[in-house]
Design a protein around this nucleic acid. Structure first.
Length: 210
DNA sequence: ATAGTCGCGCCCCTGGACCA
DNA sequence: TGGTCCAGGGGCGCGACTAT
């Protein structure tokens, strides 16, 4: 420590303050991590960071309320815009352990994965829609395509009766992106497993398209 | 910057309940 | 029996952030 001329007591008090701040920051960072949304972004859009939201919602025992009611409360009492009311509510539910990442309001889980490929949108779409091409990167899966909208989306029933929603989007003339949402999964571990599965399969698709 | 992640809102469809 | 209403669930796509 540099000699600054300040008294030991003053220096010590700074140290304590610093420790307290650090401790608080750590907790706040914990909240942000749990909620999946940074304090900075939240504060900029809602006026408060997680610490204050948790306090405010705990005060009215919002953790005993259904999701919808919390959203309405945040929206009406604090005049927070719709989307942000959802973000605050979902984050609060996660912080309170009422909901895990990937878990939906209905209790089911979902796994999401997306990837961008250096091919045209129609070529990417065909790699999914044509069974023969699909078998090259997604072999041995006896799936059912429920609905398909060319170059836009595809709804699939997986062999185990879970649901896979696929969205296609162009990213400029030579690039395209696919976004996979695997829904109706029963628990977090199967959600993690399918996330890993899709990561591998989309990797294989990239090889096929290369 | 760009890619990837996450989860909700809206709207439509379907099936069951109720009524004429 | 046929028509209508209603609730619940699924289809679809978007908005906004985080990660790289």
């Amino acid at each position: 420590m540099q000699k600054t001329g300040e008294s030991y007591t003053t220096a010590r008090s700074h140290l304590i303050t610093k420790q307290q701040v650090t401790k608080q920051q750590a907790r706040t960072r914990g909240f942000a991590k749990l909620a999946g949304m940074s304090d900075a972004a939240l504060k900029a859009k809602t006026g408060c960071a997680w610490e204050r939201w948790v306090k405010a919602l705990d005060r009215v025992q919002a953790h005993t309320w259904p999701h919808r009611r919390i959203v309405e409360h945040v929206h009406e009492k604090y005049k927070v815009p719709d989307w942000w009311s959802q973000t605050v509510t979902v984050g609060y539910e996660r912080i309170k352990g009422l909901r895990a990442i990937g878990q939906r309001r209905d209790g089911g889980f979902e796994a999401t994965k997306s990837k961008t490929f250096a091919v045209s949108l129609s070529r990417l779409y065909r790699a999914w829609s044509q069974a023969r091409t699909r078998a090259q990167w997604l072999p041995g899966v006896d799936l059912t395509i429920r609905t398909a909208s060319r170059d836009t989306s595809m709804r699939i029933t997986w062999p185990d009766k879970t649901a896979v929603d696929v969205g296609f989007a162009g990213r400029g003339a030579r690039k395209s992106q696919v976004a996979v949402q695997h829904r109706k999964l029963t628990d977090q571990s199967s959600a993690l497993r399918m996330k890993q599965f899709w990561d591998e399969r989309l990797g294989a698709l990239k090889e096929v398209l290369a």
